Computed example of a mutant assay.
Amino acid sequence: MAPINLNRTAVTCALLALVLLIFLGMGWQDRHGMAFAADDNAEKTTAVENGAGEDIKKAPCPPCPDPAKVVLKGLEEKRAAIAEDQERLEQEKKRLEKFKEEIDEKLEALGTLKQQIQDDLAKLDQRKTEQELESQAAFDAKMNTLVKVYSGMKPKKAAAIVDKMDIEVAKQIFSRMRETSAAQILAFVDSEKAAKISERIAFKKK
């Protein structure tokens, strides 16, 4: 019985040794694989960084604008805009001045026309007054002639004519006669007409 137990023990130890060797081999492979992978990753990272660095070095940085030039450019643009506004204002000013001159000329022409109209109206009034005076003078001359005629006639005969005369004309004649001659003729005039003539002569004297 003893040899059998020895063989079992030997087999068991051999199996344990084999398992141990397998595990140890797997750990070594994992460690060395991870190391190799880390080395590869490090090399790739270094290569990428070196390439990016080279790209950065190769791409030049764009030049920054000069602040003074930027300010000068802005001032120049502002000056040009102001000059353009001034030119536009000058043109507008000239246009308004021309328009003002045209208005002044029209006002002057209207003033001249107004004065001419006033002068014409004054001349017309004067002419009208002169015509009225001439007409009134002619009328007075005719009335004075009739007064002389009727004053020289017999009262009864003159009264017969006055009865057929327009009452306004009779008033004008009797208002120019001497009271004595007028009374003698009116004594023979129709009483109703004589009263109207007397009333009108009295009203005119008032």
Rank of each mutant, 00 (worst) to 15 (best):
M1K: 00
A2N: 00
N5M: 00
L6W: 05
N7C: 02
N7T: 06
R8F: 01
R8L: 02
T9D: 04
V11M: 06
L15Y: 04
A17N: 04
A17H: 02
L20D: 04
M26T: 13
G27K: 10
W28C: 07
Q29H: 11
Q29I: 12
Q29D: 09
A42C: 01
T46P: 01
A47K: 02
A47D: 09
A47N: 06
V48T: 09
V48Y: 07
E49Q: 11
G51S: 12
D55F: 14
K57R: 15
A59V: 13
P60D: 09
C61G: 10
P63G: 08
D66S: 15
P67R: 06
V70R: 11
V71I: 15
V71Q: 14
L75K: 03
E76H: 00
R79P: 00
A80W: 00
A80T: 00
A81S: 05
I82M: 00
I82F: 04
R88F: 07
E90V: 10
E92G: 08
E92C: 02
K94S: 14
L96R: 14
L96Q: 15
E97H: 01
K98C: 07
K98H: 11
E102Y: 03
D104Y: 12
A109S: 12
K114R: 14
Q116L: 11
Q118G: 10
Q118M: 13
D119M: 04
D119I: 03
D119Y: 04
D119T: 05
D120V: 02
L121K: 02
L121E: 06
K123T: 05
R127H: 07
K128I: 10
E132W: 06
L133D: 08
S135Q: 14
A137G: 09
F139S: 13
D140Q: 00
D140R: 03
A141H: 07
M143W: 00
N144S: 09
T145R: 03
T145H: 08
T145F: 07
V147E: 04
V147H: 03
K148T: 10
K148N: 11
V149E: 13
V149Q: 12
G152L: 07
M153V: 01
P155F: 07
K157V: 15
A158Q: 02
A160E: 15
K164N: 15
M165Q: 09
M165A: 12
D166G: 13
I167S: 13
Q172F: 06
I173N: 05
I173K: 04
F174Q: 01
S175I: 12
S175D: 15
R176C: 02
R176F: 08
M177Y: 07
M177I: 05
R178W: 10
E179L: 11
I185T: 10
L186P: 07
A187G: 11
A187S: 15
A187F: 09
A187I: 03
F188R: 06
F188T: 08
D190W: 06
E192C: 01
A195N: 02
I197K: 00
I201E: 06
I201Q: 05
K204I: 01
K204E: 08
